[in-house]
Every structure is written in structure tokens, then in C-alpha cells.
Design a protein around this nucleic acid. Structure first.
Lengths: 221, 221
DNA sequence: CTTATAAATGAACATTCGTTTCTTTTCCAC
DNA sequence: GTGGAAAAGAAACGAATGTTCATTTATAAG
């Protein structure tokens, strides 16, 4: 009764992952019950266990799947030799990838604590691998003298925090398009580690320029 | 009723909040039971309800208390007129305040979704008020031509995301001191909205001197 | 002291939790 | 068609959930 139209084989397993992803992202792992997921999928709670070993397995698979996909997608594009270009490529990739997968990102950065130790280590290893890519870019840039990054590990984390934060507020159809966001972040990241000094107003209050044209900006608003 | 002066009177209520804060931060609101909190306080579960109306009230009080304290602490210090100096003051304050209260920060940024609608609105209003301060600084800086912020609302969020991220990894006694972290972030934030162009260069009015030696960052790890 | 009251206990309430088990239904190769 | 495997339904398991309540203990004022 109530059979699906097509063959239902992998269909349920897929919508299970999708439902769990959305619910975990929205309410958090601990606040989501297997019964909620079952209702969302349109199935009885017990039936879920034909496709997944446990609730914890579900979370682990989602997170490892996301991180693996992240690494794969990043490696699928060529990384420019030039550090500045590489940084821009990284930034644009990160923003675009994360905007498209806000739910998965949210979970991956938020539910680390919900993972049992062994699963945590597996995900954490992937996360550090990704972070290492950015750190490497910053180190190369600093060595080449084209970037200012007094502490690449900290800078890498700071940048990733900034970029990932986009998932907290960006909504499709808002004031800005994804491309505009991408441009703004790319600009900010490039500047944040620019080899040119910042305008240190603290020690130079006389710093105000005579006057300039409107803030020249490469990113249209 | 309003008696409460005794020795152990407010003691339990206080350690209750402390215990809840740590547990919520560590495991998440939904994953923490009143029984866990009670055990941490050293009391039976039912006794908690002499000091708090419900688990949800506990979360709301923690979050509103934190945000209120944040606003109060910020307003307690003078905000420089000069936009660049104000930005530095904001950055240093934010990093310092958040490093000292990693647990509360974590909860406030993480458990918004665990709040019931009415409580959510109350906290969100405080959050936007704080965000508005930074946005105002960026707008003033851009208007004065000393900052490059094509979209102050986005830039404000990006910066706050970056700064708040410090609570995810900073641990006292690590490789860097809190002051060093503070310096690094201050430098990055100042650069990220610097009126001077990034390395790839675009329009540069009133060009910058060639001296790149005044790297104002005082931290070397 | 007595007395009022705040706080803690210990047990219980009705729900909900993740998961298991058994049975029935659906699907696909033959 | 038949047989067997995979998936779903139905019901239940023990444990844990937030919370209440009557009772006892501690505390401070009069």
C-alpha cells in the first residue's frame, strides 16, 4: 500500500539523508529524533534502520561525506601557482561551495561535538587537511613577499571563519546575489593579508586623505 | 520571598548558571539534561526548579545576560571618533571579551535556534544592535574615505564572523597569548577594509607611498 | 524558643527517546 | 507464475526526558 511510483530502491535512502541533513542543520543533531526524520521521509521509524545503522552513523556519514566532497571539489579545479591568484581561487571556491551547501556546512562546523571520539577524529583530520591548503597558500605568499601573514595558522583559521560565516545569513533571493557576496569576500580576504600596510589610524590621526572620489570599489553593489 | 541574603542562598543559583553555561557550550542545549546540570551542581534534579522556571528559561537568561553584558562592557569604554581607531578599539574589545567568555559566546552564536520564538527575537535584537555598532564604524570610515567597505552590512558580518571564530580554537596556555591573537586579528581586520588597494590593485586614488616597511603588526610569534 | 520561608530530597508523572523484533508487503530475478 | 531478498509496518522494549509534588531539612527573623 502507498507504494511509490517508480522503483523505491535507493530513493528512500537518499531522501533519508536529505531529510536528516535539513533537520540536523535546522534544529541540531541532539534535538532531532529518528521519528522526526521518519515522518519527513514518510515512513515508520523502524524502517530507517534498513538503511542506516544508527543515528550516530547517520551524522558521521553526512559529515564525512560533506568533507570528502569538499576536498574532491577543491582538487578538481587547478590551483594557480601565484599565491595571490591561489588565494582568490580558494576564497571564491569556498564561498561558492558553502553557499550552495549551507545545511551541510552548518552541520560540519557545528556538530563536531556530537560525534563520538572515533568519528570526530576522522572528520577533524579532513578539516585540518582543508585548512592546511589555505595555510600553505599564505605561507607561500609570505615567503614570496607578496602577502603579509605574521602567523599563517591563525590567519588561515580567521579567514575560514570569516568565509564560512556567510552560511549564517545568506539567503537566496536576498539583497545580494551569490556572485556579489563572492566578490566582496574575495576583496576582503585579499586585503586582510595584503603585503601593503593597513592604514593604521591609531597612530596616525592625520591620516585622512585630502579627499577622494567615492570609495572606489571593484565590486558593484 | 525577596529575602535571600544568607550564605548558601545565592550560591547554588550561581553555580547553577555556571554549570549550565559550561555544559550547554560543551554539548549543546538539547544534549544537556537537567539531570546532568543537577549532578554538576551537586543537587537533585527537582531542586533546580527552586531557582529557574524551566530549561528554556535557563538558556534565555544565559544568552540575554551575555548579550547585555557584552553591550554594557562595550559602552563602558570610550569609542574613538576616528573611524580607524574606532575599528581597532572594536576589534580588540571583541577579541578580548570573547576569549574570556568562550563558553557564553559559543552558546550565544550557536543556540539561537534552540530559543523559542519570543526569546529568539529578544536575543536577536541585541545581536543586531551590536552588529550595528561595527556597521556604523565602517560606514563612517567609508564616508570619510579612510576605509574601503563596498557593503558595510556584509563587511560587518564578515568581520564579526572572523573575530568570533577565535573561540573555536583558542585555548589558554597555547602557542600564542591572548594579546598576540588580539594583535593579529586587529591587523587583519584593519587591512580587510583598508582604503588602500589590495595587492592586485585596482583604482588607487591618492596613491600610497612605496614604503611597505611600516608593517604595523607588532606580533611575531 | 517559635515560626515562617526558602531550599533540598526522593519519588513519581506522562512523554519521548533510540532501537529491536516480528510480521507483512513489495520488488526483482528466474 | 515462484522464491528469496529487501523494505516497510506495527508494536514494543528499557531508558531517559522535563517537570511536578509532597515531604523533609536548613536558615534566619521575631
Amino acid at each position: 500500500m502507498a507504494r511509490r511510483i517508480g522503483s523505491s530502491g535507493a530513493q528512500t535512502a537518499d531522501s533519508l539523508a536529505k531529510a536528516a541533513l535539513r533537520l540536523f542543520a535546522r534544529h541540531g543533531y541532539a534535538a532531532v529524533s529518528m521519528r522526526m526524520i521518519a515522518r519527513e521521509v514518510g515512513v515508520q521509524p523502524g524502517a530507517l534502520y534498513n538503511h542506516v545503522g544508527s543515528k550516530q552513523d547517520l551524522l558521521r556519514d553526512l559529515m564525512i561525506g560533506h568533507m570528502t566532497e569538499l576536498m574532491k571539489a577543491f582538487r578538481a579545479q587547478p590551483l594557480p601557482e601565484d599565491p595571490a591568484a591561489a588565494l582568490e581561487a580558494f576564497t571564491r571556491f569556498h564561498v561558492r561551495f558553502h553557499i550552495d551547501r549551507a545545511d551541510a556546512v552548518f552541520i560540519s562546523y557545528m556538530e563536531l561535538r556530537s560525534l563520538e571520539p572515533e568519528n570526530f577524529r576522522a572528520v577533524e583530520r579532513l578539516r585540518q587537511e582543508y585548512e592546511g591548503i589555505l595555510r600553505g597558500i599564505l605561507e607561500r605568499g609570505a615567503r614570496a613577499g607578496v602577502m603579509h601573514a605574521p602567523d599563517p595558522p591563525v590567519a588561515a583559521r580567521a579567514i575560514i571563519s570569516m568565509l564560512t560565516g556567510v552560511t549564517h545569513w545568506f539567503r537566496e533571493g536576498g539583497r545580494l546575489t551569490a556572485r556579489q557576496i563572492e566578490d566582496i569576500y574575495t576583496d576582503m580576504v585579499a586585503r586582510s593579508v595584503s603585503a601593503r600596510p593597513a592604514a593604521d589610524g591609531a597612530s596616525a590621526p592625520d591620516d585622512t586623505p585630502k579627499d577622494t572620489e567615492r570609495t572606489a570599489c571593484s565590486t558593484q553593489a
